[in-house]
Simulated scan of single mutants.
Amino acid sequence: MSMPFYVAPEQVMKDRADYARKGIAKGRSLCAVSYDDGILFAAENTSSTLRKISEIYDRIAFAGVGRYSEFDQLRVAGVRHADMKGYAYSREDVDAQSLANAYAQMLNHTFTHEMKPMEVEILVAEIGDERAGDELFHILYDGSVVDEDRFSVLGGEADAITARLDESWADELDLGAALRAAVGALAGDDRALGADDLEIAVLARSNGRRKFARIEGEALTALLG
């Protein structure tokens, strides 16, 4: 009887992390930016049907990068989780932090127990009645959760985009300025992104009970200026 090869646990975890990061880096990046009326989401996405940014609940949005089939599976699970909690308790009891914790447990379990980790990074965002109540939870492929403040960047070019956003972001940006800052950070100095290259959405305090809305077509072109 042959003996199986021994691989140190540290090496197994490193190999899984490298595999997940390489898969995520193949896709386009995404960012979320805080502005005066809520949170803006901007992704480089030429598809009109395969969405990276979606509504989860009244005040909560979801965004993902990496392998589409995997983060869309997580989106569906999040919608079901929120609907069940809202039905069992009340709509006010559905919050981004508990949803982010549930996602973190799912991703961590897959990362540590399955042969192949999920090649995804996701973002769960919620807006409050005041800007101080806005929340951005960035969840990595291994279940790590980062509580972001001014903005959050997901994807393989996160470091470069974060550096550009750090230069252009300012407190109390309006929607147009936040959009131009986000798109400029995604594009960099050597490219230009038009309305057809982008997927844009917001969680806005002025939107009524359901805060999520997409910005498309002429409205997006006008905001891009």
Rank of each mutant, 00 (worst) to 15 (best):
M1P: 02
A8W: 02
P9C: 12
E10T: 00
Q11A: 05
M13L: 15
M13E: 12
M13D: 06
D18N: 15
D18K: 15
Y19Q: 12
A20R: 13
R21L: 15
K22R: 15
I24H: 03
L30M: 09
L30I: 11
A32W: 07
G38E: 09
A43T: 08
A43N: 10
T49Q: 01
L50E: 11
S54W: 01
I56S: 05
I56F: 07
A61Q: 09
F62L: 06
F62A: 06
A63T: 11
R67T: 11
E70L: 12
E70M: 10
L74I: 11
R75N: 02
V76C: 01
A77G: 01
V79T: 09
A82L: 05
D83M: 07
K85L: 13
G86N: 08
G86A: 02
G86M: 04
A88E: 11
A88S: 11
E92F: 01
A96D: 02
Q97S: 10
S98R: 09
L99K: 02
L99P: 10
L99A: 08
A100F: 03
A104L: 08
Q105F: 07
L107C: 05
N108W: 06
N108V: 00
H109F: 10
T110D: 12
K116W: 01
P117S: 10
M118I: 00
E119P: 04
V120I: 12
A125W: 00
G128N: 05
E130D: 14
G133Y: 04
F137Q: 04
H138Q: 07
L140D: 14
Y141T: 05
G143Y: 13
G143M: 13
S144I: 13
S144Y: 11
V145K: 13
V145I: 15
V146E: 08
D147Q: 15
R150K: 10
S152W: 04
V153L: 01
L154V: 12
L154M: 07
D159I: 09
D159T: 15
S168F: 06
W169K: 04
D171E: 15
L173R: 09
L173C: 06
L173Q: 08
D174L: 08
A178Y: 01
V183N: 02
G184H: 10
G188Q: 08
D190W: 00
R191H: 07
L193E: 04
G194P: 03
D196A: 14
N207A: 15
N207E: 14
K211F: 06
F212T: 04
A213S: 14
R214A: 06
R214S: 05
I215K: 00
I215E: 01
E216V: 09
E218M: 03
E218D: 15
A219S: 14
T221C: 01
L223P: 04
L224R: 13
